[in-house]
Design a protein around this nucleic acid. Structure first.
Lengths: 246, 246
DNA sequence: TCAATAATGTGTGTATTTTACACATTAAAT
DNA sequence: ATTTAATGTGTAAAATACACACATTATTGA
């Protein structure tokens, strides 16, 4: 992703009117995507939200979404939203769940496919001048518009589960990070405290971190060593996944 | 579920023509659900398939699906398919993934939400007179119509994962089962062999099986004891789910 | 300059879980 | 009654998870 990528905040995004014309007076089902975009900043897990453009939900925040174009792949629609709102391409994006209750959307029958995305806020920060967009600490997210609270809760739970099974977290960190950064990330996502020494041991025995032989700059005390995630090595590994446990 | 439930095989199910009229000459997206219905019989994991009604795919098998009605909840549509095809209600049903490539369906733009269902084939067997429907051994499933092979593969993988984390498997067994039945089930789903003694220990230490103080009938050798799954006790448990491992 | 401070980095012992494997018991079949 | 092929039970080693102690390093500030 390059900093030259322009951010298109509200351009090309269908509004309430578009949605209504899509479903109004028809017996059709409209299809949308909604993206739950996570970031990690100041040791807090954050989510990118936009002010709702519906009167009924004025003052409320909502997820970033749009209708799917008729000749657009579903995943492509999600990538489009992401690019529009963050200027970023080549980011982690995964489908989570589809919400399709008849009355979930006030403008009519809109079924929405939700996606979870993890981005590095440092790459995005420079672009967030639009005050319609805001990074919210996930701990303060409540009362979103529509059924977006439910969607968000579902997505967060999925993230908490997936981050323990796959190396997704690194998408939220800079390429170079300290063990403390990594632990702070996991503690923020899982909302728990972990033992520093066992956490370290865990990741070292996985043997998927590249020691960069560099140390943190600007640390107020003893600086930690910097690491990068070894994606190549991870790809070669095949997880032994059998273990009944419920 | 009662045996009085009638099975409606092809009635009320939209055909190719209906799909085409839904999407033809419009710039709209049609929405369907597809159900991957698993059963367990003769110690093999099976999936319920139907002969494709499209010429292009004649001779091929496909999943059970239908368009979603405009005023029908998404989950309700999936339940409707299940009821139509198996006569069963109150069965395990969970959404898995939504497939939305532009060209995935030959009749036009149809986005499909896939569901995974687990049923007891003993409850269904009596109704399967329609030779359009057939239980296929999952090991022989290949070359399904449309993108249904991809959908099936995805669903099976999800099942393999979920069955290790949640007590889903019991939906495929009779209420009373032996430890050997249970192990056969897991071996069929996961496609692995497991140590009989460790498997037994695993489930006994979980302490979620009710000893019915009954033994198998008609066993050709020493009969095993029968058990039932303790759903009540399971509901009360809360899994300790923290453990980074990838 | 140098001790106090607050981090990082390393190690150790215990408990728990997983894994591999041996032997006794039971009911059916011959 | 003996053989057979299951079920039911136990035991020890290996691997993993967990709790916690101590040394090291860079910064801070008196």
């Amino acid at each position: 992703m390059s900093p030259k990528d322009k951010v298109m905040h509200t351009k090309n995004v269908k509004t309430l009117h578009a949605i209504q014309s899509e479903v109004e007076n028809t017996n059709r089902i409209a299809l949308s995507v909604d993206c739950v975009i996570f970031g990690f900043d100041e040791n807090k897990l954050k989510v990118l939200l936009i002010r709702s453009d519906l009167k009924k939900y004025s003052g409320k925040w909502s997820l970033l979404g749009d209708l799917v174009f008729p000749k657009e792949d579903l995943d492509a629609a999600a990538y489009r939203i992401l690019k529009q709102r963050t200027g970023l391409s080549d980011v982690y994006l995964e489908q989570v769940h589809t919400f399709g209750s008849v009355n979930r959307h006030p403008a009519g029958r809109v079924v929405t496919v939700t996606y979870c995305s993890l981005i590095n806020v440092q790459h995005h920060k420079i672009n967030i001048l639009d005050n319609e967009l805001h990074w919210h600490d996930i701990k303060t997210v409540n009362d979103l518009a529509f059924d977006h609270q439910q969607i968000f809760d579902n997505c967060l739970k999925q993230l908490q589960k997936r981050v323990q099974e796959h190396p997704l977290g690194f998408n939220l960190l800079p390429k170079k990070f300290s063990l403390r950064d990594l632990q702070n990330l996991y503690e923020a996502i899982l909302d728990i405290k972990m033992d520093r020494r066992n956490f370290r041991k865990k990741f070292f025995t996985m043997d998927l971190l590249i020691d960069l032989n560099e140390i943190e700059q600007d640390a107020s005390h003893r600086p930690g060593k910097l690491y990068a995630f070894n994606y190549e090595k991870y790809e070669k590994k095949q997880k032994k996944w059998v273990g009944i446990d419920f």
